[in-house]
Every structure is written in structure tokens, then in C-alpha cells.
Design a protein around this nucleic acid. Structure first.
Lengths: 347, 347
DNA sequence: CTGAAAGCGCTTACAG
DNA sequence: CTGAAAGCGCTTACAG
């Protein structure tokens, strides 16, 4: 294939390359005679010209592309976020490209370094891994601003958009306590970022205030994935001092929990109350519908993009930490603790 | 921020830019003395150099980036596909960038033109919209190969990876017929691409062979989204001649169907059998577990990437259409037609 | 309104 | 083993 260049159009139209460039520039045929414009457009269409971004990008070191880095493209949490970001980016004239790190440190570093070497306009970072800091250095070396979502990064000079994890976890835990539960288990995960850590803290502080002792509640740490929720639940529900209520730290964990609960034929909420952080697909179709703490993902994504756009406009503004509120959405998977359950269950 | 260039490193290390480039090139410090290499690496690290891809990309018109275009990033079908592609691309040394068109014609055109103007190595197209053809012209103008997945594009010079939609639909329909159902409804969608069309055809041909008349079955055409599945199901299940079995054409439609069925408190499979094209999240947790036709998405994605890589290696090979088989996975949402149901239901 | 020329930051034959 | 120079394909001051 012969790829058509501006020079080819210039020859065909009998004008200079500069003129072709002017005609084809997005600002429209500024300062070019209508007749010349016409000839250029015609030649361009006839030859099948396709503009090449690269040279301009190189000269001006600025492209209208925002990169978003997620750790698991299959996770509905991230896809909802991506969609919100994409839509807002489109409004502002930016394209969004998504990079999946698959929870792989190495891929995350490659992703961030590539975005740096590609000189994108900005990055939304929704994945905090062990190699994030190295990648952040790369981005900062070339002056690309970063907005983190989901987790804040206090030691770094970046903007962050998060939710009030601690308060939401407290509220969910207090809801369980209010129903009479005392033996409550939380399935949590590694606190690599701030958000998981805060959720666990919210849980613990609610229990502490209610005077629940360390030997009464259970903290089970998984890896935030479906399988880990499944396995930990199997373990929790088959131990003699099984909990009467479960608090799950994220959506994939919840999905695994539900699979285990179904397999063990545990009745929800009669034998077990479940409250989950993050909404899940088909929550309303489940029996019973799953109660959740729902984060306002669309707003978070849209806000993160706006934050990035402002940052681009004013690189020297102080860093912002924006906190949204989550909503406790009760749908039926939690209920009063049942005395008979403790006696009958497990036989 | 002062962005460090090769020239800066050269000055600091007391060598030429060419030498710096040689040291920093991925091939390793070929033909450079160890001492010089050391000095260059040191200067590079001290100054915080971040390589710039753009010039090389421009000169050689070839980047190690594959773009994948999907119409709905929130759809688990696409995210599973993306993950498979990403993983295979990584194996071959390519990065994958995802572009979401949000089922918007305009965004699809922008997406394809941008990938063209960015000169990516190849494109995997999982979204067939009204403006696909214009975008395909752009890609072809600059010699970027395209592999379509999910739909074939017989009129275009592209490779395609699809599944045997017709046969799978036939098998699902025959399964329902075998259970005694005759009044079967299919909720289908617009046949913009080949796959939806073929699924509908498979359904129809099975019915035809079974001697089911045109006045017995029902075809309801939605738009493949959750809400349309929901609304159409509400309509179908409240009409006097309601079907005893439902065949849904894709995953989002199924999710809407299930929501409607739950709301109407219809018993599955006693009052209604449901078989779905595409697997859905939490299928095993539903009551009853949802029976589906599962496409081998991981294999399809991996194969599509391999196809693209071969195409890049041999641009003149004839176009290939690769067909994978889907699997009918029965889990409990279909059952024998119940005579009592017809009498009692609806009162 | 139009053209000639410089420049974006690399890489790589071409010399030495 | 190393350097000077050309070139990738545009855009945009600078002249005219």
C-alpha cells in the first residue's frame, strides 16, 4: 500500500504542502482561497489521504488522549468507571484509551511507561500496584498529570477522587449490629491502597464502639478476587463458631461469597446476613436481592476527568483530594439475627 | 518541567546523541564500549530521562500497539474478550489499547480514524456500526490490518473470527422443542452484523423443521440491551398467548429478561423455560442457574490476536474466516412444558 | 493568500 | 567503537 502524504496532495493539487496543511487543519481553511481549498479537498479525497497525528504530536508534545489504567478489565467496578470517564472525556474533546494491567506488576509498569513514552495528555490511575511508584516517576519526568481514583496517594503529587470508605463501612457494620448480630465476619483484602484499608478500619471502629471483643468478630483476608471470596466463605461457614453476618470488601469477593453460600445451601438472610461493598451485576435478580454499599461510580469517573482537564489548564494548582459519599442500599440480604439458627444450623 | 532529551544525556555523558541512542536501544548496548555505556546509563538515570516513542514511530511507521474497538465496555462479553486479547497481545510483545464506542456511530468513526492517524499496528474490531465501513476505509488507506470478531464482514478484505451461531441456535431451539415446547419466543435484535442474523436464522430453521407454524412462535426484536430485554419480556409474559419458553439472543437481553421474570414472579422453569445466548455473570448463583450457549471467548480473543500477528507478518495471505464452536450448557433454567401451567398461569 | 524552510526528537546508514 | 548528518511527515512563524 502506498500511503498518501501531504506532499502527494500538494503535487496533485498544484499547491505547496503548507497550503494543504492549512486547508486540512481542524481550524478550517483559514486564510486560504475557496478555489484552492476546493482543489485540495478534492485531491485529498481522490487519493485517500489519512492524516498522520504523529508529527504534530511530536512537535507540540501534547495529544488529546487520556489513558486510564485499570487492574482488571473484567471487573464491573472498573468498566462502569471507564464508561463514565470515556463519556466525560468525549465531552471535553479527549479520547480515552484503556490499558489493563491484569493485576500484574510488570504489566502495570509497562503500561505507565508506555503512556509516558507516548506522551498522552494525562492519566487516570485506577490500579495501585507495587510498581506504581516507578511508573509515577516516569509520568512525572515528562510532566504528565495523574489523577488516582478509588485510592488516594498521600505521598505523591497527584489529584485523587475517592469515596468515604470508612464512614460507609461503619454504616454497614452498624446496620448489622442494629439487627442484633455480634458474630460478624469481614472478608477483606490486602491494604495495598488506601481504600481497602479504610473499609477494614471502618468495620473495626464500629465493632469497637459497640463493645465487640477481639474474640467475637472475624477478619478473613483474601485477595479481592472471586475465588478467594468463595474459598474463605466455605471456611467461615463450616467452622463451629460460624458468623451470623458477613461483610464483604469488594464486588468480586461478594460474587464468590454468593457462590459458596448457594453451594452450602445457607438461607439468606435467615441463617446469614450479607452486606457487600460495591454493587454487583444482577443484584436485583438474586434471591434475596443483594444489599450493597454503592459508590457513585459515574460521578467519580466524570469528576476524575474534569479534574484532569483542570489540571492540564493549571498545572500549578494545589493537589486536590475529592471525596464522594457512598450509599447504603438495603435490598433484603440482611435480617435480624435468628436464635433458632444458632441451634439448628450445621446439624 | 524540563523534559530530558537524548541530547541532554549526551552532553552530560560527554558523548554524541547517536551513542546515547545506541546504548538506550532495546537491543542493548550493541557495539558500544562498556565504559561509555556505563556513563550513559548513569547520566540517563540521574537526569530522569523518559524515552519518547513518537519519533521512531514516525520514521518507521510501525508501533507495537494493537487497538481493540468495542461497542460497550460495560458488557461482560466484551470485557472477557478484551482480557483474552490483552493477554495474548502481551505474549507477542504488543500492547493493547481499548477504545469504547458506546454504541455511538460517531464515536466509532472517531475511534477508527484515530487509530489510523495514530498508525497502530493493527485493529481488532468487535463493534459493527453504521459507520464501520468509513472507518475501515481509513484503516485500509494506511495499510492497517483489521480482524473482526463476533461478526464477519464478507464484503471487506479482513480476517474474521466468529462462532457457529446458526448451529448453536438450532441446538438450543431443538433442546426446547425436545422438552415439548411449541410456543417459543425469541428475543432478538437488529441484524446489523452477521451474528445476530445467524442466531435468528438458526432459531427459525429449527422451528421450520419441527413443523411449527408462523402463528405459533414469536419473534420480538429489541436492541440487545438490558432494558429492551426487560420491556419485551414484560410484554410477552402478559399477553394471553404467552410463550412457554424463551430464547434470548445475547447476554444483556438475558439480564433484562431475568429482571422482568423475577418481577412478575414467574417460576422458572416450571412456568417458563429460558435459554440464553452468551454466558452471564452469576449464572450459577441464580435460582435456577441459567442455561446458556457459551462462546469460547478466551480462545476467540487469543486467536484474533494471533491472526493479526500473522497478517502483519504476511500481508498478502488470503483472508481467513475462522469459526469456533459454542457449547450448550444446561444448568436448570429449562424444563418440560407443563400442562397445568397453561391452565393456572395468569389468574 | 501562498510558499520555502525550520524544527519536533529520535534512529540509522555512512564514514572514519 | 563513535560521530555528523539525513530523514520520518507534519505545522507554523516568516516573508512576500
Amino acid at each position: 500500500v502506498k500511503i498518501i502524504k501531504i506532499k502527494d496532495i500538494a503535487e496533485r493539487a498544484g499547491v505547496s504542502a503548507a497550503t494543504v496543511s492549512r486547508v486540512l487543519s481542524p481550524e478550517g481553511s483559514a486564510r486560504v482561497s475557496p478555489e484552492t481549498s476546493r482543489k485540495v479537498f478534492e485531491a485529498s479525497a481522490n487519493l485517500g489521504y489519512e492524516p498522520n497525528n504523529l508529527p504534530a504530536k511530536m512537535r507540540f508534545n501534547r495529544s488529546k488522549v487520556i489513558g486510564i489504567v485499570v487492574s482488571d478489565i473484567e471487573n464491573p467496578f472498573f468498566t462502569t468507571l471507564i464508561r463514565a470517564c470515556e463519556s466525560e472525556a468525549h465531552e471535553h474533546g479527549y479520547r480515552l484509551i484503556v490499558v489493563n494491567t491484569d493485576e500484574d506488576e510488570n504489566k502495570e509498569l509497562i503500561a505507565l511507561k508506555s503512556l509516558a513514552s507516548e506522551r498522552v495528555a494525562g492519566v487516570i490511575l485506577a490500579s495501585i500496584g507495587a510498581s506504581s511508584s516507578l511508573g509515577l516517576v516516569s509520568l512525572s519526568n515528562v510532566g504528565i498529570p495523574v489523577v488516582t481514583v478509588d485510592n488516594s496517594l498521600p505521598d505523591w503529587d497527584v489529584d485523587s477522587v475517592v469515596t468515604n470508605n470508612r464512614a460507609a463501612s461503619r454504616a454497614a457494620t452498624e446496620h448489622l449490629l442494629g439487627l442484633g448480630h455480634r458474630r460478624i465476619a469481614m472478608i477483606t483484602g490486602p491494604s495495598r491502597g488506601s481504600s481497602i484499608h479504610e473499609r477494614t478500619e471502618g468495620f473495626l471502629s464500629a465493632l469497637r464502639e459497640a463493645g465487640i471483643g477481639k474474640d467475637e468478630f472475624i477478619i478473613a483476608e483474601g485477595d479481592l478476587r472471586e475465588e478467594s471470596g468463595y474459598l474463605l466463605t466455605k471456611g467461615l461457614l463450616t467452622r463451629p463458631d460460624r458468623p451470623t453476618a458477613l461483610f464483604t470488601v469488594n464486588n468480586l469477593t461478594t460474587m464468590g461469597v454468593l457462590r459458596a453460600v448457594r453451594e452450602l445451601e445457607v438461607e439468606v438472610p435467615d441463617q446469614l446476613s450479607i452486606i457487600a461493598f460495591d454493587d454487583i451485576p444482577l443484584a436485583l435478580v438474586l434471591e434475596p436481592p443483594q444489599s450493597v454499599i454503592a459508590q457513585p461510580l459515574r460521578e467519580i469517573g466524570a469528576y476524575a476527568v474534569r479534574q484532569l482537564v483542570s489540571r492540564l489548564a493549571d498545572p500549578d494548582a494545589p493537589c486536590a483530594l475529592t471525596v464522594f459519599d457512598s450509599t447504603l442500599t438495603l435490598r433484603g440480604s440482611t435480617g435480624a439475627v435468628s436464635d433458632s439458627f444458632a441451634a439448628t444450623w450445621g446439624e
